[in-house]
Simulated scan of single mutants.
Amino acid sequence: MRLTNPLFRPVLFACLVAVVAVLGGCASLGPKADALHRTQYAWSGAIRWGDFEGAWGLLDPDMRDEKPMTDLEMERYKQVQISHYRDIGGMSDLDGGTAARDIEIGVINRHTLAERTVRYQETWRWDEEAKRWWVTSPMPDLWSGQ
């Protein structure tokens, strides 16, 4: 299309409108949604790469105080390697300060090298005072069904 073509300006305008619409859809959903995404990413990474102590630090402080993890429980987590951590669905109520995700975790026993899949549901709550999200579900039970 040449610059002198009478269709050039309407086509250019339509393209610009489309680009603006697409970029507008990429805008942030807000600080609470961004914080949830970042915290879920940190949680997923900690579990996926075997940083269970790091994951423990993302649990709701009330839960950590109520039922502290023993050294034996932490040692059990060192007996496994995670092969995958997949989000298979979820929901969030940002205004209500809650979220949940269904997760599939691939677990490899370091001693037998046997792999199996475990399902886990994460639950989250927004802490208005701390301005952050906490995991309110317990650490994943990687030994269920054994």
Results as ranks from 00 to 15, higher is better:
Met69Gln: 10
Ala42Pro: 04
Val135Asp: 03
Pro10Val: 11
Gln81Arg: 15
Arg125Gly: 06
Ala46Val: 06
Met63Gly: 05
Leu12Asp: 06
Ala114Gly: 11
Trp143Tyr: 10
Asp62Lys: 13
Glu128Cys: 06
His84Asp: 11
Met91Gln: 15
Gly90Gln: 06
Phe52Asn: 00
His37Leu: 09
Ala14Tyr: 10
Gly54Val: 02
Glu115Val: 04
Thr70Lys: 01
Leu7His: 13
Thr117Trp: 03
Arg116Gln: 10
Ala130Gly: 07
Ser137Tyr: 05
Pro140Leu: 03
Met1His: 09
Asp71Asn: 04
Val107Lys: 00
Glu75Val: 00
Leu29Asp: 12
Val118Phe: 00
Ile88Gln: 09
Gly45Leu: 14
Ser92Gly: 05
Gly96His: 10
Asn109Phe: 01
Gly97Ser: 09
Leu23Met: 14
Ile47Phe: 04
Glu73Leu: 07
Pro140Ser: 05
Asp62His: 11
Leu23Asp: 08
Val19Asn: 08
Trp124Pro: 00
Arg76Met: 11
Lys32Asn: 10
Glu66Asp: 14
Gly97His: 05
Tyr85Gly: 01
Glu104Asp: 12
Arg38Ile: 04
Trp133His: 02
Leu29Gly: 15
His37Asp: 04
Asp65Ala: 15
Leu59Thr: 01
Gly50Asp: 00
Lys32Pro: 07
Glu128Arg: 10
Asp93Ile: 06
Arg38Leu: 13
Arg38Tyr: 12
Cys15Glu: 10
Met139Glu: 04
Thr4Glu: 15
Ile88Leu: 08
Glu75Gln: 07
His111Thr: 11
Phe8Ala: 11
Pro10Thr: 10
Pro140Cys: 04
Val118Trp: 00
Trp133Gln: 02
Ile88Val: 15
Gly30Met: 04
Thr39Trp: 06
Ile47Val: 15
Arg86Leu: 14
Lys67Gln: 12
Gln79Asn: 12
Trp56Pro: 01
Trp134Met: 07
Met139Asp: 03
Gly25Asp: 08
Cys26Phe: 15
Phe52Pro: 00
Arg116Asp: 09
Asn5Asp: 15
Trp49Val: 07
Pro61Thr: 12
Arg116Tyr: 10
Pro61Cys: 12
Glu66Ser: 15
Leu72Trp: 08
Asn5Pro: 07
Tyr120Gln: 04
Gly50Lys: 00
Met1Asp: 09
Val19Phe: 09
Ala35Gln: 10
